[in-house]
Each structure stands twice: as C-alpha cells, then as structure tokens.
C-alpha cells in the first residue's frame, strides 16, 4: 500500500492520543484506587456496587437501631430494677407489720415508710423520657401510666391509663423488637398498698382479722407484681442478648458486603502498574520509531 508522508504524522498523533487516554485513565484509577471511574467502565459491576451500598446503608442503620434500642432496654431495666427494690422493701415492711407484737405506734411509723414506698413506686411508674413522654404507657405515651383519683373509693384510686401495645423497632429485615414495657399490673398493687398503709396508719391492732387480711392481701399483691416485674426485667435482658446476636450477624453480613465491594470496585495496583508500564514502553517505542522514520527523506541525500 502506498503511504503518504502525512500518514506518519497522523498515525503518530493517533497512537499518542490513544496511549495518553489509557495512561490518563490508569492514573485516575491509581489516584483514587477505584477500578470503576464511571458506571460505563463496567455497568454490571456498578449496579452490583450500588446494591451493596444499599445493603450497607440499611445494615448499618439496623446496627445503629440495635445500639439505641439496647440503651432504651437498659433504661427500662434499671427503672424496673428500682421498682423491684421498692417492692421488696414494702414486702419486708408488711411482713414485719404482720407480726402480732407490733404496737399501733409501730404500725403507724411503718405506714409512713410504706406510704413513701408507694409514692416512689407511683412516680417510677409514671417515668418520662427527656421529651416528657411516658415510658411505661405502651403506645399511649402522652397519657400517664397510672392515674391517681383521690375522690374514688379506697382500693380503686389508682388506675392503669396506658395501654399494653408495643413500640416496635426495626432491627433487621422483617425483624422487629419491642422497645417498651407496659406497667399494667402496678395499679392493683398500688391500690392494695395504699389500703394497707391507710389501715396501718389509723391506729389499729394488727391482730384484728380484718387488719391482718388487709396486710395479707397487700403481701399477695406485692408477690404477684414482683413476679410480673421480675419476668419483665428478664425479658429486657433476654432481648438484649438476642440483639447482641443479631448485631453480630449484621456485622458479619456487612463485612462480607464490604469485602465484595472491595473485590468488585477496588483497583488491583499490581495489575495497573504493569499496564502503565506496558503503555509507557509502547509510547516510548512509538516516539523512537517516529524519530527514526521522520529522518528518512530522499531530499536529505539529493
């Protein structure tokens, strides 16, 4: 084939151009360590990367939720633990009060202690979060958990005004965990304790069967409530254990996803360096060839 003189220049230009393009692409890859500079470099891989980013975003949110939920459960646990202690003290007082040797004055002073425990329990039941929402009212978080009505008949003055619905937190795909507990059992207990405290404060003899029955009733109510609260504390602890396991699972999935993203999206520096080297060699060879060829002219020897 006949070659025109200007073809050498054209070939040289296009060789320089295409090699420069490849070197530029490699340099950009090496600068940010990404194999894909643009989606069109590998559309399928970029779709996979985008989906992995999606998965990573949601899994890390699940893990954040788990951490926040755990702290909520711990808060619940410590409130419930405090109530358990109060109930234990009230129980001790009532057991002591049931002793026939107590004088009415002894009973009256015990009633004072019992009353303060009753108030403490009542306030703990109506605990609020930092934004003034009731913790133990179920989903009726704007309503007090236990409402006290001084005008009602004794023994029915405390009522549970929350609900027993759960506030579910999303902790995994399709997995929800309740963040709250409802203290629906405490109204009965508070009513019984109030009746006992009022009775004991009124200068009665503990050996009177009616008084004894009141103390015994309050003791029974405390036992029932302590059992119930105890199992709720256990529930909070169990939930935290499950959340820890779930968190570890999420961490594993996240790590696997991140590894996959690295495999798909990260540049193999060794490979890139080798390619860069071969382009450089090709470029140098082209330049040398052009330098030689461009010196060849018949006019030089005429």
């Amino acid at each position: 084939m006949r070659i025109a003189s200007s073809q050498y220049t054209a070939t040289m230009n296009s060789a320089l151009q295409s090699t420069s393009e490849k070197v530029e692409h490699l340099t950009a890859q090496m600068a940010n360590g990404l194999r894909l500079q643009r989606p069109s470099d590998d559309p399928l891989a970029s779709v996979r990367l985008s989906r992995l980013a999606r998965a990573d975003a949601i899994v890390s949110q699940y893990r954040d939720n788990i951490a926040a939920l755990k702290s909520r459960l711990q808060t619940n646990e410590s409130y419930l633990g405090g109530m358990s202690n109060d109930m234990q003290q009230a129980r001790d007082l009532l057991v002591w009060a049931a002793d026939g040797a107590n004088s009415p004055a002894d009973l009256a002073s015990m009633a004072t202690s019992l009353k303060s425990l009753q108030d403490s329990l009542f306030y703990t039941c109506n605990s609020k979060d930092q934004e003034g929402r009731y913790l133990f009212s179920g989903t009726a978080s704007a309503t007090p958990t236990i409402t006290y009505d001084p005008t009602a008949a004794p023994g029915a003055r405390y009522t549970f005004t929350g609900n027993t619905a759960t506030q579910d937190v999303v902790v995994g795909s399709g997995i929800r965990q309740a963040a709250n507990v409802s203290l629906d059992e405490m109204a009965t207990l508070l009513n019984q304790v109030e009746v006992a405290a009022t009775t004991l404060a009124s200068g009665v003899n503990v050996n009177t069967p009616a008084v004894h029955a009141v103390v015994a009733g309050a003791l029974d109510a405390i036992d029932v409530a302590m059992n119930s609260v105890g199992s709720k504390i256990a529930g909070q602890g169990g939930a935290q254990n499950i959340l820890s396991t779930l968190d570890a699972n999420h961490a594993n999935v996240d790590e696997a996803d991140q590894q996959a993203a690295i495999d798909i999206g990260q540049l193999d520096y060794g490979d890139a360096a080798t390619q860069l080297n071969s382009y450089t060699v090709a470029l140098q060879a082209t330049q040398k060839a052009y330098a030689k060829v461009s010196q060849l002219s018949l006019f030089n020897v005429l």
Binding site: I58, Q61, N65, R72, E131
Partner: peptide
C-alpha cells in the same frame, strides 16, 4: 429510609 428507620427507636422523639 435510614432516618425513618432510626425514628422507629423512639417514634415520639
């Protein structure tokens, strides 16, 4: 979606 998800921890917050 993350913000919505986070709100499930305390929907009243």
């Amino acid at each position: 979606l993350r913000a919505l998800n986070a709100a499930t921890v305390e929907p009243t917050s």
